[in-house]
Design a protein around this nucleic acid. Structure first.
Lengths: 210, 210
DNA sequence: GTCTATAAATAGATAGAC
DNA sequence: GTCTATCTATTTATAGAC
């Protein structure tokens, strides 16, 4: 979100389109998303979508941008803070989890983009992703200099963080379905438990304990 | 695959359709997959797809079935073997990695199904998934009785295994793109390294070491 | 078994009134 | 800013010849 729009024109219909589109893209993917359905969910007509956005692709890009822009802002601040490297890793993970959780469409969309090689990612979003990785790289490098981290490749560490996080957040529906299938055994793991777990695992790797 | 087809009719055109469809579904998702493109990739015409399969959905179900049927067969054998619980966990992970790697379409399709709550999973495939989880549950229970494993929920352990595996296998394209973006830092992790890593991590969790 | 049409439905996008 | 109506292209699916 952020930019665009000058006077917040009473009806905030643009936000409704945005929200409806995010949900549609999350549950059906880019190709499966349907402009008519988005309009209906936004309690508007299709023409209004094209009034606010240039087209399906531009709409999708706006959503990706909002997602990764928010993550970039958060983790850049973490990297620039004056905590210890260990605390920065924890905060980095917290930030990604928080932004991912604040947008229910975030994990499914990210998962899909990975599955299709980031085919719909535009240049602006790609820049944000680069910044996110740079932030993590800087934290790891700082830990290296301080002698507390091993020099693991940034992408490996990032994978170890987002794989379980996105997977967990995105899979609540499948988990529910599978739980229903195998009756019981529904642990209902909390967000906090997952985040704490990923934090421990990541630090254990960085510190060479596993 | 397995079932269906009685006499392998010379041209094995059904296999070509199957393979082309698997690749198409993997890279574009169910909604984004296009029957014309599948036909072209299979060096056939669209009518031939409908000659072999009832429709787009049936074609997709056949692919899901092949994927999860293979995993089910492999992990059921592992659970029934007479290794130690630790070895069974390693073999379980190995089996999933092997089946996933043998089918390049497997990781992307699985990732997508998770993103959309398994909406296109049919009853037969769901049964296979149940069996896979039952196998893992049996291994964990055996370890509990032997006193070497903590009683972690099956779904949690399964998530810890498939999240990194599917993520890694599915993300080679994005990883390459990101690596190109940040220039260098391309670790080119091997399949063996990832599997070994997941095995260590999973056992560390089950044995309460992390 | 394999092919060439073609039917029938759907979906992205726009014109133009209010 | 918001709407209805519509154009156009794409897409699943099938009929029917060979």
């Amino acid at each position: 979100m952020a930019a665009r729009r000058r006077r917040a024109p009473a009806g905030e219909s643009r936000d409704r389109v945005f929200a409806a589109a995010a949900a549609e893209f999350a549950s059906r993917g880019f190709a499966g998303a349907n402009m008519d359905r988005i309009a209906r969910a936004a309690r508007l007509n299709k023409a209004m979508i094209y009034y606010h956005f240039a087209g399906k692709t531009a709409l999708y890009h706006a959503i990706l941008n909002d997602m990764f822009g928010a993550v970039r802002t958060a983790v850049t601040a973490v990297a620039a803070s004056d905590r210890s490297p260990e605390d920065k890793i924890r905060a980095y993970i917290d930030a990604i989890a928080a932004e991912g959780e604040a947008r229910p469409h975030f994990p499914p969309i990210w998962l899909r983009e990975i599955a299709e090689g980031g085919e719909h990612v535009d240049a602006e979003t790609l820049g944000y992703i680069r910044d996110v990785l740079a932030a993590l790289g800087a934290i790891i490098a700082e830990g290296n200099r301080a002698g507390c981290f091993r020099p693991l490749p940034t992408l490996i560490v990032q994978g170890g963080i987002i794989a379980p996080l996105m997977f967990f957040f995105a899979s609540s529906r499948v988990r529910a379905r599978i739980a229903r299938l195998t009756d019981a055994d529904v642990p209902a793991v909390s967000r906090e438990a997952v985040v704490a777990h990923v934090q421990r695992l990541t630090l254990a790797q960085l510190e060479g304990r596993v």
